[in-house]
Simulated assay, not measured.
Amino acid sequence: MGVDKISLINKQEIEEVTTFLKKFDLKYDKNIDYTVIIRDNNKIIATASKEKNIVKCFAIDSSCQGEGLSTQLLTNIINKMFDEGFLNSKVFTKIENQELFRGMGYREIAHTDKVILMEMGNKSILKVLEKIKTNYNIDTNEKRAMLVMNCNPFTLGHQFLIEKVASENKEVLVFVVEEDRSIFPFKVRYELVKKGTTHLKNVKVIPGTDYLISSATFPNYFLKREDDHLAEYTKLDATICGEKFGKILNIDRRYVGDEPNCKVTNHYNEMLKNTLPKFGIEVIVIPRKKIDGKIISASYVRELLKSKNFEELKTLVPTTTFDFLTSSEGKEIGEKLRMQVSPC
């Protein structure tokens, strides 16, 4: 029995894999870029997929476990990642699969009672956090607060929240979501946050890494999807925040803006409030800034950019953001908005 690659444009093959995965309470992810299967008597008995450097949709028929199929599948997937230049890989899997992946060289990042996130390769979460400590001159003898923000784009609402946190804490770390799945690229979002907070000397703006709100830890965030996996994704992301970021960077507070409009983000905030206190981190919810009784939201700012309503847009964003939005690069993003539906 050999490993076969399936065609991602062949609907029949995709449907066959999807049906097989349903037996394991798994869903075939639309962002997958590579899938392999093993057949016996023309029926799928094992499969694994990947999205960039993340192993996904790994499943082996119970009657065939212990026959070395997992090694065949994962070796093929890992070699494909290596060919594409990925020297680090992650896997989000059920807790009962952890020993299988440990045997392949994977190390645990964090786990819940149901799922585990593991990684293998030339970097680790501990190395990344130590590098952050060095690069941003973080004195871990001092307590500090943190925020995790997407800022798509950076608004007066975001600025108000950071200013509020800065006024209540000696030092604040603002992690900007690094995953590039928003209409505004990470590099743009990161620069806008930095420029919009230069007046706050106790604020450090840091790339969010691929360990906070990423496609490995919390894909629902980008899909804005409520499903039966949402609880585990949010719990895992919150656990990584508390167990690793909180402990290593000596964080004792995490602030979030309240979220009356988006159910996925609201669920995430609730999970943070339930999980982070276990790691000694207080979760503080700040009411969102309003202008004329209306909440400032990045989604509304994007709508104004889409409709070229720069007059109202100017009242909702810092000057640094407005200058970007009216630049050639900003107007180009506006054109993209007019051609597609943007996530909430």
Results as ranks from 00 to 15, higher is better:
Phe24Arg: 08
Glu232Lys: 06
Leu126His: 08
Ile44Met: 10
Val283Leu: 09
Lys133Gly: 00
Leu117Met: 15
Asp210Ile: 00
Glu243Ala: 12
Met120Ala: 01
Ile240Ser: 05
Lys289His: 12
Phe222Leu: 05
Asn141Arg: 12
Leu316Ile: 10
Pro260Glu: 15
Leu304Ala: 07
Glu15Ser: 03
Ile37Leu: 13
Arg181Ala: 02
Glu329Cys: 07
Arg181Met: 06
Val203Ser: 07
Asn269His: 13
Gln65Trp: 08
Lys133Asn: 03
Thr320Phe: 09
Tyr300Thr: 11
Asn31Val: 06
Asp33Cys: 10
Ala46Arg: 13
Lys170Cys: 08
Asn97Ser: 13
Val264His: 05
Lys11Glu: 13
Gly257Met: 07
Val174Asp: 09
Val165Gly: 08
Ile32Pro: 02
Arg253Glu: 05
Ser328Asn: 07
Thr140Ala: 00
Asn88Trp: 01
Glu312Val: 11
Thr320Glu: 15
Gly280Thr: 13
Leu129Thr: 11
Ser215Tyr: 15
Val174Thr: 11
Leu74Val: 01
Ala110Pro: 00
Thr239His: 05
Asn42Lys: 12
Ala110Asp: 06
Glu13Val: 02
Tyr300Val: 07
Gly330Met: 15
Gly157Thr: 14
Lys23His: 11
Glu16Val: 03
Cys241Asp: 03
Glu13Leu: 13
Val55Pro: 00
Val165Asp: 06
Ser89Pro: 00
Phe245Ser: 00
Gly246Trp: 15
Thr112Trp: 04
Asp228Leu: 02
Thr18Leu: 01
Leu126Trp: 11
Asp228Ile: 02
Val341Ser: 07
Thr134Arg: 14
Glu312Asp: 13
Asp323Val: 04
Asn152Cys: 11
Lys5His: 12
Pro185Ser: 03
Glu96Ala: 12
Thr320Lys: 14
Leu26Ser: 04
Thr140Tyr: 08
Val128Met: 12
Ala145Ser: 15
Lys131Trp: 14
Asp252Ser: 12
Val264Leu: 01
Asn76Phe: 05
Leu100Gly: 00
Glu84Met: 04
Phe154Leu: 06
Phe324Arg: 11
Ile240Met: 10
Ser49Gly: 08
Ser49Glu: 03
Pro260Lys: 14
Arg107Thr: 02
Val148Pro: 00
Asp180Pro: 02
Thr275Tyr: 06
Phe218Pro: 04
Glu84Lys: 10
Cys241Ser: 10
Pro153Leu: 11
Asn31Pro: 08
Ile162Val: 15
Val341Cys: 04
Gly242Thr: 12
Leu200Phe: 10
Lys170Glu: 14
Lys94Phe: 07
Thr321Val: 11
Phe86Thr: 02
Lys308Ser: 14
Thr140Leu: 05
Phe20Val: 10
Ile251Gly: 02
Thr134Lys: 14
Lys27Arg: 09
Thr35Leu: 10
Glu226Ile: 06
Val3Ile: 15
Pro260Ile: 15
Phe92Gly: 06
Val301Leu: 07
Leu337Ser: 06
Phe154Ser: 03
Lys308Thr: 08
Cys262Lys: 01
Thr18His: 07
Glu232His: 14
Ile32Val: 15
Leu129Arg: 14
Phe184Arg: 09
Ser215Met: 13
Glu312Thr: 10
Lys247Pro: 00
Asn266Ser: 09
Ala216Leu: 01
His199Val: 09
Ser7Arg: 07
Phe279Val: 03
His199Pro: 04
Gly66Lys: 13
Glu270Leu: 03
Phe92Pro: 01
Glu282Thr: 14
Tyr106Gln: 07
Thr112Ser: 15
